[in-house]
Design a protein around this nucleic acid. Structure first.
Lengths: 200, 200
DNA sequence: GTCTATATGGGGATAGAC
DNA sequence: GTCTATCCCCATATAGAC
């Protein structure tokens, strides 16, 4: 197999395992087994665990950018795009209840380890913050755009944290709906009908 | 030294280390060194790591109950008690920026490990939820008490998660203030002056 | 590029002397 | 109750054959 393809497979397997089990709790052997590779060969592709982490963060940055671009393409109005962000909580509820938010839990773990990559992981939050701020700016809230963006991140992170602890789907839906109500209040020009709660 | 006293010291050292470095990342040797004990002797007091975790959760439950009782004793009005909860974010900001919320990060780590104690750790959230709900009930919001309590937990958890990632103290103060504004809006009978932002 | 075999270190955990 | 010595396993990481 081509080295780049194997590297891609390793990175994707590590991405999933880091999310499901955590960075420290995932061993080389776990990743190698997931890809169907021997431990020895593994080191041909990645020399250290930190190198894998770097590749995983790069992958998540790329995936996040693609997701945000998809949301932007999927809705003409900034309010609808923000709703896509909120809806993510419902769409990913199973994973969130089992393993939390991939971004928040990674940042938290790396902060405790005082890992060199902790700031790079925080840039994942930065992507969401900047993208949300852009939508609020387009809605005429330029002065408050970053504050409003961070407030949405706060609530989504809090929902994820408590959903992991209590594993209560109703709670997620209710708090997501409350976020939409808040959004409507911040954007008085918006029609109520544009802010119904997603069911998917 | 008396066994109970040594056990207490171990539990407190483990409590701090689990918070600062995480449960998995903390080794027996780390805890033993913090207490000034040999590894061998360590096993006289705790047979397994899970046993230490259990003791740490018990300690945190007791400490949390004591803190909540202190807040109740320190303010006659339920609104002031809730403000004590919000103020905790400011008071603990240094620790939160470095290591996150002790409750949220422990629940998150144990969930990923699928650890047997994950539900016991979630009961720490339960203590806050029930205590906050009690205050809202006393304020005549009995029907919504749990929902309002969980909303406060959501926002405090989200603030902790993002504060850890961005290490921005201004952000913490601003979001804490926003929580107080929200609280004022939920309790229309409350005087504005009762809801000023703590500075400590 | 992939494998097996292996080095090395640290983790949890135990035995037994004092 | 405390210590030293030790066991075993699994982790990261390397060497070298194929």
């Amino acid at each position: 197999m081509a080295a780049t393809e194997t590297r891609r497979q390793i990175t994707e397997a590590a991405d999933a395992l880091f999310y499901e089990r955590g960075f420290e709790a995932t061993s080389f052997a776990d990743i190698a087994a997931a890809v169907g590779l021997s431990r020895g060969n593994f080191y041909y592709h990645f020399k250290t665990k930190d190198e894998i982490l770097e590749a995983v963060i790069d992958l998540r940055m790329a995936n996040t950018r693609a997701m945000l671009a998809g949301w932007a393409a999927g809705a003409d109005e900034p309010a609808g795009r923000i709703r896509s962000f909120i809806h993510m909580l419902i769409a990913n509820r199973a994973g969130i209840m089992a393993h939390g938010c991939p971004v928040g839990t990674l940042c938290s773990e790396l902060a405790k380890l005082d890992h060199v990559a902790k700031d790079r992981a925080a840039e994942l939050f930065g992507l969401f913050r900047d993208w949300l701020a852009l939508q609020f700016s387009a809605l005429g809230r330029g002065d408050d755009a970053e504050r409003l963006a961070l407030h949405l991140l706060v609530r989504s992170q809090g929902i994820a944290a408590l959903a992991t602890a209590f594993r209560d789907e109703t709670f997620i839906r209710r708090e997501a709906a409350a976020m939409e109500t808040w959004l409507a209040g911040e954007l008085p020009g918006l029609a109520k009908s544009d802010l119904s709660i997603p069911n998917a």
